[in-house]
């Protein structure tokens, strides 16, 4: 145990810190290797050593030679992620509001969400694919794939909203109503702004989970791929560092999104708690 004021840290601290350090290395080491290798020289291969440094393989992505429809799949992925984000945020926030009280069917919806989360992705994709086949609708990224991705993002959104609402003090709403705000005004002026950091977290999950989704999307994608499916196809037929270049690019996009989300959450929190003590504790 870390005892405050005991001065020296116990040996377990160093053992655990070393373990943690190794884990972080394990987590980021291989990723950083492909980031470096994506700058491989034109004659370089899939492994070290580096044969010079260049942007050749990034260029190859945008050229029309061997690397498929990178620009198109990237655009589709971003668009799809934005749509998924919007639906996930709206539906999760509404459901989060609803789930503050038990209602008829709440248990059913809860278990449906949990099972939707743990069902093997390919199986879900198969089901969605079958549904569209039976309905005679051609699967497409904006219909069947969108639906399949929502089964992955909505449960996460709901679970985050549970966590967010468990810390939300209902007195804020009563205070707003006491001060003359109607239901909509309370929601818009008080509840949503207070929950904003949590809502941004839901948006982050909605975007990134969609942007990187692959097993659920594989079957119901239709004729035009999203980026992860394009990468999946490349893993089996592209044997050049272009694959790494693509990996570096898509990860960079993810990092930008993560950074924007986390920074905005941090800014909101900082604005609320610059100096001073926290007073919004629910108890």
């Amino acid at each position: 145990m870390h005892r405050p004021g005991s001065g020296r840290r116990p040996w377990t601290f160093y053992a655990l810190a070393a373990f943690f350090g190794l884990y972080v290395l394990f987590l980021y080491g291989p990723m950083s290797a492909i980031f470096i290798l994506s700058f491989q020289g034109p004659t370089g291969g899939l492994t070290f050593p580096m044969n010079g440094v260049s942007l050749h393989w990034f260029g190859a992505l945008f050229g029309q030679q061997r690397t498929g429809d990178f620009a198109g799949s990237f655009t589709r992925s971003i668009l799809l992620a934005v749509i998924v984000l919007s639906i996930t945020v709206a539906a999760s926030v509404m459901a989060g509001l609803a789930f503050r009280r038990r209602f008829l069917g709440s248990t059913l919806v809860f278990y449906m969400a949990i099972f939707s989360l743990i069902i093997p992705g390919l199986l879900l994709g198969l089901g969605v694919g079958l549904m569209f086949q039976f309905l005679g609708i051609k699967p497409a990224w904006y219909s069947s794939a969108l639906g399949a991705q929502l089964t992955w993002t909505l449960p996460f959104g709901l679970l985050i909203m549970f966590a967010v609402f468990s810390r939300f003090n209902p007195f804020y709403e009563e205070a707003a109503r006491d001060l003359g705000a109607g239901y909509g005004q309370t929601l818009w002026n008080v509840v949503l702004p207070i929950l904003l950091p949590g809502i941004i977290a839901v948006a982050l999950f909605g975007f990134t989970l969609s942007y990187d989704e692959f097993p659920r999307t594989l079957i119901p994608i239709g004729s035009r791929n999203t980026l992860p499916l394009e990468i999946w196809a490349m893993t089996t037929n592209v044997t050049s560092p272009a694959l790494y270049a693509l990996g570096t690019l898509t990860t960079a996009v993810s990092f930008v999104v993560i950074a924007v989300a986390l920074t905005s959450i941090a800014l909101i929190q900082r604005r609320r708690t610059r100096r001073g003590t926290r007073t919004d504790a629910g108890d």
Binding site: E174, A175, A181, G182, P193
Partner: peptide
């Protein structure tokens, strides 16, 4: 709000996202 009463809550329930001024002005804004 239609009763002519006003309530002061136990932990005050001051809106954490609004400045002191906007907290006080909340009723007028509504």
């Amino acid at each position: 709000a239609g009763r002519g009463t006003a309530m002061m809550f136990q932990n005050y329930a001051l809106f954490p996202h609004l400045s002191v001024l906007d907290n006080v002005a909340f009723n007028l804004k509504m």
